[in-house]
């Protein structure tokens, strides 16, 4: 009997979209006086429930705008769901849009500490893993260059290296296995699969069904924020293929 690592129960995420975006005080007051402040409710997720046990790997499939990334952000704790509950156990490594949290004026080395701190690592831990991160990112001398001079691939490589330096219990992957060149892609996929062997629980979003089939053992399909199919990867991928026909 293995432990439940992620438990999502009846989660819904509601956004209030203003018909015309108001984000300053002047517009707000004028619109409020004219009674033009209308909100439109929009549910990005509705009635989402699933459970993942230790070592299970779930692929989240769906068309653009189906709510996949929103679901990952809710599990990562970045977004708070409007309804329902989420329970997670252990260390979460969120790999969402790698390198987006870097400070551009900081060098790569300084960003290792900054981004590491954001992910909740301690100074001692980062000191001990510093060389390993630099080596994995293959940035060599570029590590002392401000990140604003990096290419997007270099940034993603550094982000990937920092985020995967821990042994997480839960790994959240959003389209990140397509970073860098072919060589780095292979290397990062190898790193991810080595984590699988350690029994990490995975939530994986990708548009590549082939990749999901290779990496996951379960899958769900989202459509307009609702789960339309869930089960083993074989069954779900058949449904998905039909959907995308």
């Amino acid at each position: 009997m293995s432990k439940s690592m992620v438990k999502v129960e009846n989660v819904g995420m509601r956004f209030n979209l203003m018909e015309n975006k108001v984000d300053d005080l002047k517009d707000y007051i004028i619109k409020a006086l004219r009674r033009e402040l209308r909100y439109q409710e929009f549910w990005a997720l509705r009635d989402i429930s699933f459970e993942l046990k230790k070592g299970e790997r779930i692929g989240i499939l769906g068309l653009n705008g189906a709510g996949k990334s929103t679901l990952l952000k809710v599990v990562a704790g970045v977004l708070k769901p409007s309804e329902g509950t989420i329970k997670t156990t252990g260390v979460i490594a969120p790999l969402l849009e790698l390198g987006a949290g870097f400070d551009k004026q900081y060098t790569g080395a300084e960003n290792i500490y900054l981004y590491g701190a954001v992910l909740g690592y301690s100074r001692e831990f980062l000191d001990s893993k510093f060389q390993e991160i630099v080596d994995f990112s293959e940035l060599k001398d570029f590590i002392n260059v401000p990140v604003k001079n990096y290419s997007s691939g270099m940034r993603a490589r550094l982000g990937f290296s920092i985020a995967t330096i821990v042994d997480p219990d839960i790994l959240i992957l959003d389209e990140v296995l397509s970073v860098g060149d072919a060589k780095f892609r292979k290397k990062s996929e190898k790193k991810i699969t080595s984590m699988f062997d350690k029994g990490v629980t995975v939530l994986f979003v990708s548009h590549s069904l082939e990749q999901v089939k290779r990496l996951c053992d379960k899958a769900i399909i989202l459509d307009n924020g609702r789960i339309v199919a869930s089960g083993s990867i074989e069954d779900v991928s058949l449904v998905y293929e039909e959907m995308t026909e």
Partner: peptide
């Protein structure tokens, strides 16, 4: 905003 949107802090 970049950080806030990606990681919980």
């Amino acid at each position: 905003a970049g950080m806030i949107k990606k990681v919980y802090v």
